[in-house]
Design a protein around this nucleic acid. Sequence first.
RNA 1: GCUGGAGUCGUCUAGUGGCUAUGACAGCAGACUGUAAAUCUGCCGGGGUUCCCCCAUCGUUGGUUCGAGUCCAACCUCCAGCA
Length: 407
Amino acid sequence: MFSFEIEKSLPNGLGRTGIIHTPHGDIKTPAFMVVGTMGEVKNIPPKDLKKLKAQAMLSNGYHLRKKSPKIAEAGGLAKYSGWNGPTLTDSGGFQVMSLGSGLGKVVSMERAQLEGGVRKDGTTQLKATNTAHKDRLAKVTDKGVDFIDPFTGEPDFIGPEESMQIQCRIGADIHMAFDELTSLADSYEYNVEALERTEKWAKRSLKEHMKHRDDLGYRQSLYGVLQGGRWEDLRRKTAKKLGEMDFDGYGLGGAFLKEDLAEILRWCNEELPDNKPRHLLGLSHPDDIFVGAEMGADTFDCVAPTREARHGKLYSKNGEYNLRKFHDSPLPLDEHCDCAACKAGYTRGDLRALWKSGDPEKKLIFYHLASIHNVRFVVRLTEQIRKSIIDGKFEEFKSKFLKNYYG
RNA sequence: GCUGGAGUCGUCUAGUGGCUAUGACAGCAGACUGUAAAUCUGCCGGGGUUCCCCCAUCGUUGGUUCGAGUCCAACCUCCAGCA
């Protein structure tokens, strides 16, 4: 059965440590969930995930929609993947944006990139733009989302009911309601419209989920997802509304300007019930994790640690760096790291050589080592934050860590 | 020594008379946040006032031509074959 207990809270009343109990195990929070969109984390087999102390894996219902009957047959995602631990599936809501208004664009931004200037009437002119409607692979209606599968070119459709049916076949411990993620370039007016849709979809998701949540022999839980862009009235209103509904927890969604994140999370979490867990969707950079934990997010997920690893960007206590610059370097990846790659003594030069060797097998070894290093870094960060909250030293730990990392 | 072939950016490479010399790799710089991402963008002869301008440049030197990486000649280097 699913439940959540809070252990200790920060003085601000929002941040906390806790334990999420799921049918496939416990998650001690704050926690980072590794992303294995297709049911496996790229270049990290389940046994290595255990070694680096990952506590949960996030997959995607959209990507697994065609495989979902097979996953159900295997007894659900935990067994199917060989991970055998707590799992979460996303609804496909992110793809509404990434294949639609945000096709080919980045998700988050600095304000300077968003604001092109100020119009004569005083409103902000956006530099960020949405993908033209005609070029989008996903189109949103109240019914759901019509989209073109980018790999096969085939047209398909997912609405809240379809997403719930897929997720209940996949059988992760935690599911996400089907939502519409708006882009930074969307107007207030559009966000009002999209948020109404997301709220209607939340109701429909809940209703459909109830029908199938026990189909695999254990209780699957559902989180409602909060949208509302960067507007306080929308955020508070939707948090209150969804907070009164019978969800097991909440997903904190949106495309964020970094500097707005803390405030937006505070608006949401001041309205949401305390006793249900909250998952901050899609963030993992240290500054974001600290803000999330401080403002009451319990779990996190993000593709960045694995993707950036494959792209040669590695994390260390003293900041991130590009391995490209460390030809023949004898420096450790991170002198304070306890990941398997660091414990085995791999240097930056070693990893760079594996990366650039031109040998496909060596490249896979590089992807593996770099990925476990970055994922362990973020997992360890959440462990340390948890400990700092328990020890009453969160502020101290935060300022020290961020100073080391960002200089 | 003779005959044939070849010399283009760090490397490989396109280019057979016409405007700004192609592409790839390597290199350099940057990006990436619920994975259309093992990806993408920019730079990549020199200099400057760097969304522009100047100079140099297809082995070397000459020649033909309005115009040559491209055609011609000689030379240099490399490769192959024959002596």
